[in-house]
Amino acid sequence: MKTAIVIGATGLVGSALVDCLARSESIGTVITITRRPAPHPAGKVDNRVVDFEQLAAHPELFQGDMLFSCLSTTRRQAGSLKAQRRVDLDYQLQAAELAAANGVHHYLLVSSSGANAESRSGYLQMKGELELRVRQLGFPRISIFQPSLLIGERDHLRVGERLAAMILPTLCRLPGLQRYRPIRGTQVAARMQEVALSSGNGVETFTLDEVFPSPAAAPAAARDRAR
């Protein structure tokens, strides 16, 4: 059975992902690396609490078959764009470097729709930069997920996201806007596990429609599979 490593295990996608992995018969151990205790009822989940400023002191934690990188914060939570970049880019890149050095085969990243290292948006720029830099680390397989707004129950209130989650589902029914519709964190987590347990090599990027097809696209996809 395989060993999965998860950073960002207390977040919206990460917590749902840990639940998925804990139920999988193909996963023997789930190592969750967190900044605060994150106990889980499943015996196969091994939570390790570390100071992310000292990740380099814990290379032994990044030994396994796959690394799921789900770490994320907001500028408001972090206090500044620089502090947000420390979490969303620096910590995740260092974790990826440690995993690559230990021979982890598969790296799976929750990025963002519109991620672009050349973007004028500081958020999209750091997401794009991380994508580019992990591609250079030599993982045999890299899977990048680019969802739009993530919705679901969080352990803290994000007012902007709450308002967007109320407005966007209706707004995104308009032609041309479906690509920006919200997606639940549980849906992204389920797709990540599905990809992790499938075969493949190289770099693959999953956009919103590939993670969770729109209602209009689903029947067409079903027809294509039936041919």
Rank of each mutant, 00 (worst) to 15 (best):
S199C: 12
R86I: 03
E118R: 13
D209K: 11
F52W: 10
S26N: 14
I5N: 07
P215H: 04
M192N: 03
A221Y: 13
Y107R: 01
L67D: 08
L109R: 01
A42Q: 10
I183G: 00
V30R: 05
I151S: 03
V45H: 12
Q84M: 15
Q54A: 15
L17Q: 01
I31Y: 12
V6Q: 02
R48L: 09
E97I: 13
A216D: 11
E25D: 15
R85C: 07
S119G: 04
R181H: 02
F62W: 10
A220D: 05
V30H: 07
M126V: 15
D209V: 08
L55I: 08
E161C: 04
Q178W: 13
Y123M: 10
G103L: 09
L174T: 10
E153L: 05
Q94W: 09
G114T: 01
A165S: 11
A117R: 13
A101Y: 04
A117W: 09
A115W: 08
H106M: 05
R154L: 10
Q136D: 12
R154V: 11
A83G: 02
F145Q: 04
S111V: 10
R184A: 12
T207A: 15
R181L: 05
N116V: 13
T29A: 14
A56M: 11
Q178H: 14
L81P: 12
A99Q: 03
G122S: 01
E131A: 08
A16F: 01
R120K: 15
Y180H: 10
S198E: 00
A56H: 13
A189E: 05
P41M: 06
L89T: 01
T32L: 03
V18F: 01
A78E: 00
Q146N: 07
Q63F: 02
E118N: 14
L168E: 01
D65Q: 10
R158N: 15
S72N: 12
I142L: 12
I27L: 02
Q136P: 05
G122I: 04
L67W: 06
R191M: 14
T73C: 06
G152M: 04
R191C: 07
Q77S: 14
I183Y: 00
A83Q: 13
L168V: 03
A221G: 09
G138R: 12
Q84Y: 09
A96C: 10
L174Y: 14
E118D: 15
D46V: 12
N47M: 11
E97V: 13
F62Q: 02
H40Q: 06
Y180A: 11
L12G: 03
K44E: 00
T10E: 00
A22M: 03
T186I: 10
R184S: 01
R75M: 10
N116D: 15
A218C: 07
H156N: 12
V159A: 15
V211P: 07
Y180T: 00
L130W: 04
T34G: 00
M126L: 14
A99K: 07
L71E: 08
L168I: 11
P215G: 08
A196W: 04
D65T: 00
T10Q: 08
V104A: 06
S112F: 06
F62M: 03
